[in-house]
Protein backbone atom coordinates (compact mmCIF):
# COMPACT_ATOMS: atom_id res chain seq x y z
CA UNK A 1 0.00 0.00 0.00
CA UNK A 2 1.45 3.34 -1.05
CA UNK A 3 2.13 5.97 1.51
CA UNK A 4 -0.70 8.31 0.60
CA UNK A 5 -3.49 6.22 -0.83
CA UNK A 6 -6.25 8.56 0.12
CA UNK A 7 -6.82 12.00 1.57
CA UNK A 8 -7.12 10.30 4.92
CA UNK A 9 -3.69 8.70 4.91
CA UNK A 10 -1.77 11.43 6.67
CA UNK A 11 -4.61 12.10 9.11
CA UNK A 12 -4.71 8.43 10.06
CA UNK A 13 -1.00 8.43 10.62
CA UNK A 14 -0.99 11.46 12.83
CA UNK A 15 -4.20 10.77 14.71
CA UNK A 16 -5.01 7.07 14.66
CA UNK A 17 -8.23 7.55 16.58
CA UNK A 18 -9.78 9.21 13.51
CA UNK A 19 -10.00 5.74 11.99
CA UNK A 20 -12.58 4.94 14.61
CA UNK A 21 -14.66 7.96 13.64
CA UNK A 22 -14.71 6.97 9.99
CA UNK A 23 -15.68 3.43 10.96
CA UNK A 24 -18.54 4.78 13.05
CA UNK A 25 -19.80 7.00 10.29
CA UNK A 26 -19.67 4.15 7.82
CA UNK A 27 -21.42 1.76 10.17
CA UNK A 28 -24.18 4.27 10.87
CA UNK A 29 -24.60 5.04 7.18
CA UNK A 30 -24.64 1.45 6.00
CA UNK A 31 -27.08 0.44 8.69
CA UNK A 32 -29.45 3.21 7.70
CA UNK A 33 -29.22 2.20 4.07
CA UNK A 34 -29.46 -1.48 4.68
CA UNK A 35 -32.24 -1.23 7.22
CA UNK A 36 -35.16 -1.46 4.82
CA UNK A 37 -33.53 -4.48 3.25
CA UNK A 38 -33.16 -6.13 6.63
CA UNK A 39 -36.80 -5.34 7.24
CA UNK A 40 -37.65 -7.03 3.96
CA UNK A 41 -35.74 -10.16 4.99
CA UNK A 42 -37.36 -10.15 8.39
CA UNK A 43 -40.83 -9.82 6.91
CA UNK A 44 -40.16 -12.60 4.45
CA UNK A 45 -39.77 -14.96 7.39
CA UNK A 46 -42.84 -13.84 9.27
CA UNK A 47 -46.27 -15.38 9.38
CA UNK A 48 -48.68 -13.14 7.48
CA UNK A 49 -50.34 -11.60 10.51
CA UNK A 50 -47.07 -10.16 11.77
CA UNK A 51 -46.22 -8.48 8.49
CA UNK A 52 -47.73 -5.08 9.24
CA UNK A 53 -48.04 -4.32 12.91
CA UNK A 54 -47.59 -1.46 15.33
CA UNK A 55 -45.25 -1.51 17.15
CA UNK A 56 -43.27 -3.25 14.42
CA UNK A 57 -42.22 -6.84 14.88
CA UNK A 58 -38.49 -7.16 14.41
CA UNK A 59 -37.91 -10.83 14.88
CA UNK A 60 -40.68 -13.13 13.73
CA UNK A 61 -42.27 -15.20 16.46
CA UNK A 62 -41.65 -18.29 14.37
CA UNK A 63 -39.12 -18.27 11.57
CA UNK A 64 -41.06 -19.46 8.58
CA UNK A 65 -38.57 -20.89 6.12
CA UNK A 66 -41.56 -22.49 4.44
CA UNK A 67 -42.44 -19.05 3.05
CA UNK A 68 -39.58 -19.49 0.65
CA UNK A 69 -40.72 -22.90 -0.44
CA UNK A 70 -44.26 -21.65 -0.97
CA UNK A 71 -42.92 -18.71 -2.95
CA UNK A 72 -41.09 -20.98 -5.37
CA UNK A 73 -44.21 -23.05 -5.88
CA UNK A 74 -46.44 -20.08 -6.46
CA UNK A 75 -44.93 -19.25 -9.84
CA UNK A 76 -42.56 -21.08 -12.23
CA UNK A 77 -39.58 -19.64 -10.39
CA UNK A 78 -36.83 -21.64 -12.01
CA UNK A 79 -38.10 -21.01 -15.53
CA UNK A 80 -38.25 -17.30 -14.86
CA UNK A 81 -34.77 -17.30 -13.39
CA UNK A 82 -33.35 -19.01 -16.45
CA UNK A 83 -35.04 -16.48 -18.73
CA UNK A 84 -33.70 -13.63 -16.65
CA UNK A 85 -30.17 -15.02 -16.64
CA UNK A 86 -30.21 -15.48 -20.42
CA UNK A 87 -31.40 -11.95 -21.05
CA UNK A 88 -28.97 -10.43 -18.58
CA UNK A 89 -25.93 -12.29 -19.84
CA UNK A 90 -26.60 -11.31 -23.43
CA UNK A 91 -27.46 -7.72 -22.55
CA UNK A 92 -24.37 -7.28 -20.42
CA UNK A 93 -22.10 -8.66 -23.12
CA UNK A 94 -23.73 -6.56 -25.78
CA UNK A 95 -23.63 -3.31 -23.90
CA UNK A 96 -20.08 -3.59 -22.68
CA UNK A 97 -18.60 -4.44 -26.06
CA UNK A 98 -20.50 -1.99 -28.19
CA UNK A 99 -20.41 0.90 -25.74
CA UNK A 100 -16.67 0.60 -25.39
CA UNK A 101 -16.25 0.80 -29.15
CA UNK A 102 -18.47 3.81 -29.45
CA UNK A 103 -16.95 5.60 -26.45
CA UNK A 104 -13.57 5.10 -28.08
CA UNK A 105 -14.81 6.85 -31.18
CA UNK A 106 -15.79 9.79 -29.03
CA UNK A 107 -12.52 9.97 -27.18
CA UNK A 108 -9.38 9.08 -28.97
CA UNK A 109 -10.43 9.70 -32.52
CA UNK A 110 -10.95 13.18 -33.76
CA UNK A 111 -13.37 13.26 -36.58
CA UNK A 112 -15.66 15.96 -37.85
CA UNK A 113 -19.06 15.82 -36.31
CA UNK A 114 -17.80 13.93 -33.28
CA UNK A 115 -18.95 16.41 -30.70
CA UNK A 116 -22.25 16.93 -32.43
CA UNK A 117 -22.98 13.23 -32.45
CA UNK A 118 -21.91 12.91 -28.84
CA UNK A 119 -24.39 15.59 -27.92
CA UNK A 120 -26.97 13.70 -29.89
CA UNK A 121 -26.14 10.54 -27.97
CA UNK A 122 -26.66 12.36 -24.71
CA UNK A 123 -29.86 13.86 -26.04
CA UNK A 124 -31.35 10.44 -26.62
CA UNK A 125 -31.30 9.86 -22.89
CA UNK A 126 -33.53 12.85 -22.42
CA UNK A 127 -36.48 11.50 -24.33
CA UNK A 128 -39.04 10.14 -21.84
CA UNK A 129 -39.76 6.54 -22.54
CA UNK A 130 -43.58 6.57 -22.46
CA UNK A 131 -43.76 8.45 -25.75
CA UNK A 132 -41.43 6.26 -27.74
CA UNK A 133 -43.03 3.19 -26.24
CA UNK A 134 -45.87 2.95 -28.75
CA UNK A 135 -43.93 3.44 -32.02
CA UNK A 136 -41.08 1.32 -30.67
CA UNK A 137 -43.53 -1.49 -30.04
CA UNK A 138 -44.56 -1.08 -33.67
CA UNK A 139 -40.93 -1.44 -34.79
CA UNK A 140 -40.51 -4.63 -32.77
CA UNK A 141 -43.74 -5.96 -34.08
CA UNK A 142 -42.63 -5.42 -37.68
CA UNK A 143 -39.44 -7.30 -36.84
CA UNK A 144 -41.50 -10.08 -35.35
CA UNK A 145 -39.81 -9.80 -31.97
CA UNK A 146 -42.86 -9.19 -29.82
CA UNK A 147 -43.50 -12.20 -27.64
CA UNK A 148 -39.84 -13.18 -27.54
CA UNK A 149 -36.95 -12.07 -25.37
CA UNK A 150 -35.20 -10.32 -28.26
CA UNK A 151 -36.35 -6.75 -27.54
CA UNK A 152 -34.73 -7.07 -24.15
CA UNK A 153 -31.20 -7.76 -25.34
CA UNK A 154 -30.69 -7.23 -29.07
CA UNK A 155 -30.76 -3.41 -28.83
CA UNK A 156 -28.00 -3.53 -26.23
CA UNK A 157 -25.56 -4.81 -28.87
CA UNK A 158 -25.83 -1.40 -30.44
CA UNK A 159 -24.70 0.42 -27.34
CA UNK A 160 -26.40 2.27 -24.57
CA UNK A 161 -26.12 6.04 -24.17
CA UNK A 162 -25.56 5.76 -20.43
CA UNK A 163 -22.66 3.31 -20.81
CA UNK A 164 -21.15 5.24 -23.68
CA UNK A 165 -21.19 8.41 -21.65
CA UNK A 166 -19.69 6.74 -18.59
CA UNK A 167 -16.92 5.05 -20.53
CA UNK A 168 -16.10 8.21 -22.39
CA UNK A 169 -15.59 10.03 -19.11
CA UNK A 170 -13.17 7.34 -17.99
CA UNK A 171 -11.43 7.09 -21.35
CA UNK A 172 -10.79 10.83 -21.30
CA UNK A 173 -8.60 10.40 -18.24
CA UNK A 174 -6.08 8.33 -20.13
CA UNK A 175 -3.25 10.70 -21.06
CA UNK A 176 -2.91 11.44 -24.76
CA UNK A 177 0.76 10.62 -24.83
CA UNK A 178 0.13 6.90 -24.50
CA UNK A 179 -1.96 6.26 -27.61
CA UNK A 180 0.11 8.77 -29.53
CA UNK A 181 3.23 6.81 -28.76
CA UNK A 182 1.57 3.65 -29.97
CA UNK A 183 0.37 5.32 -33.11
CA UNK A 184 3.85 6.59 -33.89
CA UNK A 185 4.98 3.00 -33.59
CA UNK A 186 2.57 2.16 -36.38
CA UNK A 187 -0.31 0.64 -34.41
CA UNK A 188 -3.78 0.74 -35.94
CA UNK A 189 -6.64 2.32 -34.06
CA UNK A 190 -8.14 -1.08 -33.42
CA UNK A 191 -4.91 -2.22 -31.86
CA UNK A 192 -4.68 0.87 -29.70
CA UNK A 193 -8.21 0.16 -28.58
CA UNK A 194 -7.53 -3.48 -27.80
CA UNK A 195 -4.13 -3.19 -26.27
CA UNK A 196 -4.28 0.11 -24.45
CA UNK A 197 -7.76 1.34 -23.70
CA UNK A 198 -9.41 -1.96 -22.91
CA UNK A 199 -6.85 -3.20 -20.38
CA UNK A 200 -6.61 0.23 -18.74
CA UNK A 201 -10.35 0.37 -18.35
CA UNK A 202 -11.03 -2.85 -16.54
CA UNK A 203 -12.62 -0.99 -13.67
CA UNK A 204 -15.05 1.19 -15.64
CA UNK A 205 -15.83 -1.73 -17.94
CA UNK A 206 -16.71 -3.83 -14.94
CA UNK A 207 -18.86 -0.97 -13.68
CA UNK A 208 -20.67 -0.67 -17.01
CA UNK A 209 -21.19 -4.41 -17.23
CA UNK A 210 -22.54 -4.57 -13.73
CA UNK A 211 -24.90 -1.63 -14.17
CA UNK A 212 -26.33 -3.20 -17.30
CA UNK A 213 -26.71 -6.46 -15.44
CA UNK A 214 -28.54 -4.69 -12.66
CA UNK A 215 -30.74 -2.80 -15.06
CA UNK A 216 -31.68 -5.86 -17.08
CA UNK A 217 -32.22 -7.95 -13.97
CA UNK A 218 -34.66 -5.49 -12.45
CA UNK A 219 -36.24 -4.22 -15.65
CA UNK A 220 -40.00 -4.38 -15.37
CA UNK A 221 -41.34 -2.20 -18.16
CA UNK A 222 -39.58 -4.07 -20.96
CA UNK A 223 -40.86 -7.50 -19.97
CA UNK A 224 -44.35 -6.16 -19.33
CA UNK A 225 -44.58 -4.73 -22.80
CA UNK A 226 -42.88 -7.32 -24.94
CA UNK A 227 -43.45 -10.66 -23.27
CA UNK A 228 -46.74 -12.37 -23.86
CA UNK A 229 -46.05 -16.03 -23.24
CA UNK A 230 -45.79 -16.95 -19.60
CA UNK A 231 -42.95 -19.34 -20.30
CA UNK A 232 -40.81 -16.38 -21.36
CA UNK A 233 -41.44 -14.24 -18.28
CA UNK A 234 -38.59 -12.80 -16.23
CA UNK A 235 -38.35 -12.68 -12.48
CA UNK A 236 -39.49 -9.07 -12.04
CA UNK A 237 -42.59 -9.85 -14.02
CA UNK A 238 -43.11 -12.90 -11.88
CA UNK A 239 -43.09 -10.74 -8.75
CA UNK A 240 -46.30 -9.12 -9.90
CA UNK A 241 -48.08 -12.40 -9.39
CA UNK A 242 -47.99 -12.02 -5.63
CA UNK A 243 -50.11 -8.91 -5.64
CA UNK A 244 -53.78 -9.69 -5.83
CA UNK A 245 -56.49 -7.12 -5.86
CA UNK A 246 -59.29 -8.06 -3.60
CA UNK A 247 -57.98 -11.37 -2.37
CA UNK A 248 -55.20 -9.63 -0.57
CA UNK A 249 -51.48 -9.47 -1.20
CA UNK A 250 -49.32 -12.18 0.28
CA UNK A 251 -46.86 -9.75 1.80
CA UNK A 252 -44.61 -12.39 3.23
CA UNK A 253 -44.38 -14.20 -0.09
CA UNK A 254 -43.81 -10.95 -1.93
CA UNK A 255 -40.96 -10.11 0.41
CA UNK A 256 -39.54 -13.62 0.15
CA UNK A 257 -39.72 -13.43 -3.63
CA UNK A 258 -38.04 -10.03 -3.55
CA UNK A 259 -35.25 -11.44 -1.39
CA UNK A 260 -34.73 -14.32 -3.75
CA UNK A 261 -34.75 -12.00 -6.73
CA UNK A 262 -32.24 -9.64 -5.18
CA UNK A 263 -29.90 -12.23 -3.76
CA UNK A 264 -28.14 -13.30 -6.98
CA UNK A 265 -27.29 -9.74 -7.88
CA UNK A 266 -26.01 -9.01 -4.41
CA UNK A 267 -23.75 -12.04 -4.60
CA UNK A 268 -22.46 -10.98 -8.00
CA UNK A 269 -21.82 -7.49 -6.71
CA UNK A 270 -19.93 -8.72 -3.71
CA UNK A 271 -17.75 -10.89 -5.90
CA UNK A 272 -16.93 -8.30 -8.55
CA UNK A 273 -16.72 -5.14 -6.53
CA UNK A 274 -13.01 -5.55 -6.08
CA UNK A 275 -12.72 -5.23 -9.84
CA UNK A 276 -14.50 -1.90 -9.70
CA UNK A 277 -12.42 -0.43 -7.00
CA UNK A 278 -8.95 -1.74 -7.50
CA UNK A 279 -8.12 1.33 -9.48
CA UNK A 280 -5.77 1.37 -12.37
CA UNK A 281 -2.34 0.86 -10.92
CA UNK A 282 -0.59 1.48 -14.22
CA UNK A 283 -2.06 4.93 -14.31
CA UNK A 284 -0.31 5.60 -11.04
CA UNK A 285 3.06 5.17 -12.70
CA UNK A 286 2.33 7.67 -15.38
CA UNK A 287 2.87 11.16 -14.25
CA UNK A 288 0.65 12.62 -16.94
Amino acid sequence: MAAADSPFSSTFRRRPWTRGIVHLLLIAGSLMFAFPVLWMISTSLKPLREALTSPPVWIPSTIQWQNYVATIEYIPFLRYTINTVVVCTLATLGTTLSSALVAFSFTRLEWPGRNLLFGLTLATMMVPFPVVMVPLYGVYRELGWVGSLKPLWVPTFFGSAFSIFLLRQFFLRIPKSLPEAMSLDGASELRIFRQLYLPLSKAPLAVVAFFQLMYSWNDLLGPILYLTDQSTYTLTLGLQAYRSQQGGTEWHYLMAASVMTTLPIVVVFFLVQRAFFQGVSSLQNVEG
Binding site: A34, M214, L220, L254, M255, S258, T262
Partner: peptide
Protein backbone atom coordinates in the same frame (compact mmCIF):
# COMPACT_ATOMS: atom_id res chain seq x y z
CA UNK B 1 -27.93 -2.88 -1.61
CA UNK B 2 -30.90 -0.55 -2.02
CA UNK B 3 -29.99 0.15 -5.65
CA UNK B 4 -30.19 -3.56 -6.35
CA UNK B 5 -33.69 -4.10 -5.08
CA UNK B 6 -36.65 -4.30 -7.41
CA UNK B 7 -38.36 -0.93 -7.49
CA UNK B 8 -41.74 -2.30 -6.49
CA UNK B 9 -40.40 -3.98 -3.37
Amino acid sequence: LPALMPIVA
